[in-house]
């Protein structure tokens, strides 16, 4: 009883605050992470069966060498543009299947977020903040630049 009263008045208790955060984390994990990864796994399955993965891998293989990535990684990069969580899910799936190794995941990590979910954030961020539409392509090019430079740095310097 006394415990209950305390938690009501004392929001300063770090344990209570942790619980609030953990609850937020649970909601995000169940409502965002699980559906997104479930979809990513299903999409990965489709791509795999249809041979799209292999096709894109062969097509972009040479370009991906710069980043120290296998050609298949291009599907992850393209997915990242649509949704960060789908891209991470896809990468996790490919890593579990041996298509991507630890080095590739490390290189891709900044790309998931620097290029992440640009399509969504056009509405949620640029639209809401009223950034003039004229400059949206410029901002998008900045994101691409960021992601590619970050991947190069990861490949050449940090993930050696």
């Amino acid at each position: 009883m006394s415990n209950n009263a305390q938690s009501k008045h004392q929001t300063n208790n770090p344990f209570d605050i942790f619980i609030i955060g953990a609850r937020k984390g649970f909601n995000v994990a169940i409502n965002n992470l699980v559906p997104n990864i479930l979809m990513a796994y299903a999409v990965a399955q489709v791509l795999q069966i249809m041979g799209v993965m292999k096709f894109l891998g062969d097509l972009f293989g040479p370009a991906m060498v710069v980043f120290g990535l296998p050609g298949e990684a291009v599907t992850v990069i393209l997915t990242a543009w649509l949704s960060s969580s789908a891209a991470v899910g896809l990468a996790a799936n490919m890593a579990a299947n041996g298509l991507l190794d630890a080095h590739a995941i490390t290189v891709l990590m900044p790309c998931f977020f620097l290029l992440g979910a640009q399509l969504q954030y056009m509405g949620r961020l640029l639209g809401v903040a009223d950034v003039p539409k004229k400059y949206w392509p410029l901002l998008m090019s900045a994101s691409f630049l960021n992601a590619f430079c970050a991947m190069l740095l990861m490949n050449w310097v940090f993930a050696r």
Binding site: L114, G116, Y121, R124, L125, A129, Y135, L138, L139, A142
Partner: peptide, 8 residues
């Protein structure tokens, strides 16, 4: 906007 957009 550009600072926020990349890696929001």
């Amino acid at each position: 906007g550009s600072w926020q957009y990349s890696g929001a």
